[in-house]
Design a protein around this nucleic acid. Structure first.
Length: 218
DNA sequence: CTCCCGATAT
DNA sequence: ATATCAGGAG
């Protein structure tokens, strides 16, 4: 199907455009699956989404966002109480510790608001480039990077778009292949496709619309 | 690299 | 039984 050994950079960029066009047709609704109504809610939901399905996060945040309406609310709450409020999302001790420290830092360093730059976001506790990219792309409509989560990591590898295993290096590889204005869209499309077709355990290559563009297709 | 967390799918 | 789920810190 795809002989990647003798594919030039330009050919690979063209293949990426075909991938984007096809996935756009299949997933016109692809967007952030986490429910939120402001940057703080999205930041919190994204931290909770680590090693947890979006569906479960959305269940927890219904009540969480009614109780915690500002950075101050996270900064003030007793750690044990916050742990119980987010327990079903897993890693609840680490996440609760991050959220409380995050709330405190937002209050002391950013006037209680979520910053809108990569530099400031990744300095926040529990926030790496993946989480920062989700907030920048979906709450602030900025294409400062590409979200590399478990789905994007897996699909970038299977599609032969990166040979690296480090998420930051994968992101750099992808940013060279995708025009900046498509960075956020690209992440959503790969995540949708990874969730429904190109699954981790048993990819449904028979149902895949980019099978002929994939060096790993069976 | 390991650890953190537990529900669900295979 | 084991792998996986919109990761990040030590």
């Amino acid at each position: 199907m795809v002989d990647r050994s003798k594919e030039t950079l330009e050919e690979k960029k063209a293949r990426v455009q075909k991938i984007i066009e096809r996935l756009r047709q299949v997933y016109p609704e692809a967007k952030c699956a986490l429910n939120f109504s402001d940057p703080l809610e999205l930041l919190v939901a994204t931290i909770l989404s680590a090693q947890c399905t979006d569906e479960r996060v959305n269940q927890v945040t219904v009540e969480l966002f009614q109780k915690y309406r500002s950075a101050e609310d996270y900064a003030r709450v007793e750690l044990a109480e916050l742990e119980e409020d987010i327990r079903p999302t897993g890693f609840f001790r680490n996440k609760a510790r991050s959220l409380k420290a995050l709330g405190q830092m937002l209050v002391t360093e950013h006037g209680g608001k979520v910053p809108d730059t990569m530099e400031a976001l990744v300095k926040l506790p529990g926030v790496g480039r993946k989480t920062a990219n989700v907030v920048l792309g979906n709450a602030y409509c900025k294409n400062e990077g590409i979200v590399v989560d478990t789905h994007v990591k897996r699909l970038a590898s299977r599609l032969g778009l990166s040979d690296n295993s480090n998420p930051d290096k994968i992101e750099q590889d992808l940013m060279r292949l995708v025009p900046q204005e498509q960075w956020t869209l690209f992440g959503h499309l790969l995540i949708w496709h990874g969730r429904y077709v190109c699954q981790a355990r048993k990819p449904k290559c028979g149902d895949c619309v980019i099978q002929d563009l994939c060096p790993s297709a069976e």
